[in-house]
Amino acid sequence: MATITTSDGTTLFYKDWGPKDAQPIVFHHGWPLSADDWDNQMLFFLSEGYRVIAHDRRGHGRSDQTDTGNDMDTYAADVAEIAKALDLRDAVHIGHSTGGGEVTRYAARAERGRVAKAILIAAIPPVMAQSDANPDGVPMEVFDGLRSALEANRAQFYRDLPSGPFYGFNREGAKVSQGLIDNWWRQGMSGGAKAHHDCIEVFSETDFTEDLKALTVPVLIIHGEDDQIVPIENAAHKAIKLVRDGTLKTYRGLSHGLFATHPDVVNPDMLAFIRA
């Protein structure tokens, strides 16, 4: 397996496919998944001539099951170490959900020349949780419920979430893919319970407002209008107002996991943005 060891001694797994002199596209997965969530997109962009890279976030997948460092600043620092180790320049960074937050924090702080464009898919920025500053956010009770479900029976919780709201399979008339559900469970259960538990606070309470404002590269914001996990009104509709050079693309009726359920729709739109 291809790995790097970070400055704090954490081993991170990554995939790196394609010509090393091609423009790199770096994929950042959502909670509590792994680089494998991007298989379709990595094959698609590889076939278009790009170098494609995806890593398992610390505590997730095949990376070390850390009990410390499970915070957004460390996640972004880990990406910076991968970018330096692989000498990634002029890269396009694509992030889903929590991974979209990771892209935002990393790109806002990245060395000049490292990042060319960013794509945020069903991403958590600017901030999910309800507060005095974000009164229309998601109530904290929702995230407490996620923590309780993980503590009580993580294996069952990781069946229930993809079977229901994550992919919109709880909607009337939905075309259910048992393979997607099983693969979600497989990826989730390969990670560490402590890191996943910590990450609930990370994706719910981290404020990316200043990161979004600091982005200088073109940003494509993609969101399903029927996202039951990261509501579009609290995320994409706010984020697009904070970035300097942003494009918003929404999809009627599509879910939080829209790039997995409808890659034939989403992939060409991402490719067009990257090529523009």
Rank of each mutant, 00 (worst) to 15 (best):
residue 59 G to R: 03
residue 59 G to V: 07
residue 60 H to L: 14
residue 60 H to D: 03
residue 61 G to V: 06
residue 61 G to R: 08
residue 63 S to K: 12
residue 63 S to A: 13
residue 64 D to R: 09
residue 64 D to S: 15
residue 64 D to C: 10
residue 65 Q to I: 08
residue 65 Q to P: 09
residue 65 Q to V: 11
residue 66 T to A: 14
residue 66 T to K: 08
residue 66 T to M: 14
residue 67 D to K: 15
residue 67 D to N: 11
residue 68 T to K: 13
residue 68 T to C: 08
residue 68 T to L: 14
residue 69 G to M: 07
residue 69 G to V: 05
residue 70 N to H: 01
residue 70 N to P: 03
residue 70 N to F: 00
residue 71 D to P: 01
residue 71 D to W: 00
residue 72 M to A: 10
residue 73 D to Y: 04
residue 74 T to Q: 13
residue 74 T to S: 04
residue 74 T to C: 10
residue 75 Y to E: 06
residue 75 Y to R: 00
residue 76 A to K: 09
residue 76 A to L: 08
residue 76 A to V: 10
residue 77 A to N: 10
residue 78 D to S: 06
residue 78 D to R: 00
residue 78 D to W: 00
residue 78 D to P: 09
residue 79 V to E: 14
residue 79 V to Y: 03
residue 79 V to A: 14
residue 79 V to T: 14
residue 80 A to V: 08
residue 80 A to Q: 11
residue 80 A to N: 06
residue 81 E to Q: 15
residue 82 I to S: 02
residue 82 I to F: 04
residue 82 I to Y: 03
residue 83 A to K: 01
residue 83 A to S: 13
residue 83 A to D: 06
residue 83 A to N: 11
residue 83 A to T: 12
residue 83 A to H: 13
residue 84 K to M: 02
residue 84 K to W: 02
residue 84 K to Q: 13
residue 84 K to D: 09
residue 85 A to Y: 08
residue 85 A to F: 03
residue 85 A to K: 11
residue 86 L to A: 06
residue 87 D to Q: 10
residue 87 D to C: 11
residue 87 D to V: 12
residue 88 L to M: 09
residue 88 L to E: 07
residue 88 L to C: 10
residue 89 R to S: 10
residue 89 R to N: 09
residue 89 R to E: 08
residue 90 D to P: 02
residue 90 D to L: 03
residue 90 D to T: 06
residue 90 D to N: 13
residue 91 A to T: 06
residue 91 A to H: 03
residue 91 A to L: 04
residue 92 V to Q: 02
residue 92 V to N: 01
residue 93 H to G: 02
residue 93 H to D: 08
residue 94 I to Q: 09
residue 94 I to W: 00
residue 94 I to H: 04
residue 94 I to G: 07
residue 95 G to A: 08
residue 95 G to S: 01
residue 96 H to N: 13
residue 96 H to C: 02
residue 96 H to F: 14
residue 96 H to M: 08
residue 97 S to Y: 15
residue 97 S to I: 05
residue 97 S to N: 12
residue 97 S to M: 10
residue 97 S to D: 07
residue 98 T to S: 11
residue 98 T to Y: 14
residue 99 G to K: 06
residue 99 G to A: 05
residue 99 G to H: 13
residue 99 G to C: 11
residue 100 G to I: 11
residue 100 G to L: 12
residue 100 G to H: 12
residue 101 G to W: 07
residue 101 G to S: 11
residue 102 E to C: 04
residue 103 V to N: 05
residue 103 V to G: 02
residue 103 V to I: 10
residue 103 V to L: 09
residue 103 V to Y: 09
residue 104 T to Y: 05
residue 104 T to G: 00
residue 105 R to G: 01
residue 105 R to N: 13
residue 105 R to M: 06
residue 105 R to S: 05
residue 106 Y to H: 15
residue 106 Y to W: 07
residue 106 Y to R: 05
residue 106 Y to C: 02
residue 106 Y to A: 09
residue 107 A to K: 00
residue 107 A to H: 03
residue 107 A to Q: 04
